[in-house]
Design a protein around this nucleic acid. Structure first.
Length: 611
RNA sequence: CGGGGCGUAGCGCAGUUUGGUUAGCGCGUCGGCUUUGGGAGCCGAAGGUCGCCGGUUCGAAUCCGGCCGCCCCGACCA
């Protein structure tokens, strides 16, 4: 069944995808259709309000242009209505995602927004998922959340129906509205409280199966973003509150993104700044003893900067000692004075998610000194000392003395204090040597997170009893993966990537319409008939057509067409009508040609191939 | 949640510092005439509880207090 289905879909996809540029899923609805037989839309009957000025609150291009162009309207902070044009774009993005999901063998479902509290308590995420889900209560006092994601629901669903290895693997997906109580929505569609997301979940019998399912999604994503006109960089990432490992993010480089990624300027290494690895430095040449550490007074010097000023030294000559509570025990994390601790890296090393900075009271109890004077020398045995690799390359440095208003100078690791282990603990910074190749250096780039894929393992299947009986008769938890694409965010990202001073430049694959006919003179019944005939002809050859028949001056129509960003336009006015010719234009590069009316269709086809 | 800014007509803004007649300007909207290949011109008109509540005052858009909303910068995520 599944086999037949995916084969048919695959061949359909190939026909659609490879044969013609414009046969994306049609988004024809009953919106403002012409009443004269064709399916084209008449601007005079449509709902596409454009704004001459951008709303004051918009700052980034996609926000300004999507509002000005009549694609979206704000309702309240982080919540938008999609107007007809915006909905058309959204549908086209969804359809591309849907086609690639189907082609990859995933099966579409549609899960509820409303999710009962009990389900979330079984996975332990009712109180821990970040950001906290929006919650609501029914009249009997029963609690629900508005789904921020669907691991619980899908796992519960599958647990009830899949019981045998014979029914696996399966990958299910949906395209649905998600709700997240973002602390700060921003940038128009970039970050909102209510958004459209494609989420897919794979269920496999073993790790190798998961690897295959994951790979299939990975490749589908590569095709999706190619078709959306979004060049992506795929980076190593952290799992966050989703859990899991081997996670990858699909990022679009953009000044207006909220994330920073590091890329090697020499090889293909790329990672989210949150988890980018730091290359261990060359080990120190000598471990010669510099003599006993010397206790020096540093009154009031609780910051790296203050210590450096008082001792006339550099942050690179200091070692920061950070005390953290991990479950019931304490660890000391050591990084060079000018570095920052990456808590996620430490968390991975320590092996517990329950990691937090020690409180002032805890520090006083452990070290006998207030915050700001902690050091590794003389720490209790029970405190594990974990040092960043760079510490191994340092000699003769400064640390806190575990005494109020005092530091130790002339300290050496392993001579003056023990190090339980060395590992990568610091945040990477631009300019670091690449951790993968030996030549390159890391460069920082702002970017937009478009998608995130995870290998979840058995967390949810164990919590929610999604087990199956394997070939050997053993009951085992299913091995899961999950895969998300920000659909409405993709709309914003596409605009960020494809616009100029005049407006949006939609790639043909996602444009609300392929071509607009600008009828400049609406008085002439003859020209109007010509425009209608042309619109019908183009519709019939597969284009989505907007006929701008509004009673507006030519300048208004040109400006709106540029702003809305139709990939192609045809100008019908007196100038060309007298000669029996029309003008065909391409938005992207302003290419244009004047052709005989009956050649217009062919000219559109031709320019479309370069849009 | 912390920091900063803003709230005056459908949209963009001035006026608030220093309280004082009928609260202005541009765009848009409506009517009329002229115009018609890159956001037209002229004439006329409509449209505002100045975010909300309370206070000070003879008098509040303006001063004071509280609340609400929106945007931007930081800790999270598609």
């Amino acid at each position: 069944m599944k086999c037949v289905q995916s084969t048919i879909l695959e061949s359909l996809r190939k026909v659609k995808y490879y044969c013609t540029q414009r046969s994306r899923g049609s988004v024809k609805g009953n919106d403002g259709k012409s009443d004269s037989g064709g399916n084209y839309v008449r601007a005079s009957q449509y709902y596409a309000p454009t704004l001459r000025q951008a709303p004051a609150e918009a700052e980034i291009p996609s926000h300004k242009l999507l509002v000005r162009g009549g694609f979206i309207r704000p309702l309240t902070a982080g919540v938008f209505t999609f107007l007809p044009l915006g909905l058309r774009v959204l549908r086209r993005v969804e359809n591309i995602v849907r086609e690639e999901m189907n082609a990859a063998g995933a099966i579409e479902v549609f899960m509820p927004v409303l999710q009962p509290r009990e389900l979330w308590e079984r996975s332990g995420r009712w109180d821990t998922f970040q950001p906290l889900p929006l919650r609501t209560e029914d009249r009997t006092g029963r609690w629900f959340c508005l789904g921020p994601t669907h691991e619980e629901v899908i796992t519960d669903l599958v647990a009830g129906e899949i019981t045998s290895y014979r029914q696996l693997p399966r990958t299910l997906y949906q395209i649905q509205t998600k709700f997240r109580d973002e602390m700060r929505p921003r940038g128009g569609l970039m970050r909102v409280k209510e958004f459209s997301m494609k989420d897919a979940y794979s269920f496999d019998i073993d790790q190798a199966g998961l690897d295959r399912s994951y790979e299939a999604m990975y490749e589908a994503y590569v095709r999706i973003f190619e078709r959306l006109g979004l060049p992506v960089v795929i980076v190593e990432a952290e799992a966050g509150s989703m859990g899991g490992h081997d996670t990858r993010e699909f990022m679009v480089l953009s000044e207006n993104g909220e994330d920073t990624i590091f890329m090697c300027d020499s090889c293909d290494y790329a990672a989210n700044a949150e988890c980018a690895a730091a290359r261990p430095p060359q080990p120190t040449q000598s471990r010669d003893k510099h003599g006993e550490p010397v206790l020096v007074d540093t009154p009031g010097a609780t910051t790296i900067q203050a210590v450096c000023e008082q001792l006339d030294t550099e942050p690179q000559q200091l070692v920061k000692t950070l005390l953290l509570r991990a479950d019931e025990r304490f660890v000391a994390a050591l990084v060079r004075g000018d570095r920052e601790l990456n808590e996620v890296k430490l968390q991975r090393v320590v092996g517990t998610p329950n990691l937090r900075m020690a409180t002032a009271e805890e520090i006083l109890a452990l070290t006998g000194a207030p915050v700001g004077y902690s050091g590794p020398v003389g720490l209790p045995e029970a405190v594990e000392i974990i040092a960043d690799h760079e510490i191994a390359a340092m000699n003769d440095f400064v640390v806190g003395a575990n005494q109020n208003d005092a530091h130790l100078v002339g300290v050496d690791a392993e001579v003056d204090f023990r190090v339980d282990r060395y590992t990568d603990l610091r945040r990477a910074v631009a300019g670091d040597e690449c951790p993968q190749c030996s030549e390159g250096y890391l460069t920082a780039h702002r970017s937009i997170e478009m998608a995130h894929i995870f290998k979840l393992g058995t967390k949810y299947s164990e919590d929610l009893d999604a087990v199956f009986t394997d070939k050997d008769g053993q009951e085992k938890p299913m091995i899961m993966g999950c895969y998300g694409v920000g659909v409405s965010r993709a709309v914003a990202a596409i605009v960020e990537q494809h616009h100029d001073d005049d407006g949006i430049i939609w790639p043909l694959n996602v444009a609300p319409f392929d071509v607009v006919i600008l009828l400049l003179d609406t008085e002439s019944t003859q020209l109007f008939a010509t425009a209608q005939d042309l619109a019908t002809e183009l519709e019939q050859s597969g284009f989505e057509v907007m006929l701008d028949d509004r009673d507006e001056r030519p300048g208004v129509k040109f400006k709106d067409a540029d702003l809305i960003g139709y990939p192609l336009s045809i100008v019908i006015g007196r100038r060309t009508a007298d000669s029996g010719e029309v003008e065909v234009r391409r938005r992207r590069d302003r290419a244009e040609k004047i052709v005989a009316l009956k050649e217009a269709g062919a000219a559109v086809e031709q320019l479309a191939s370069g849009a």
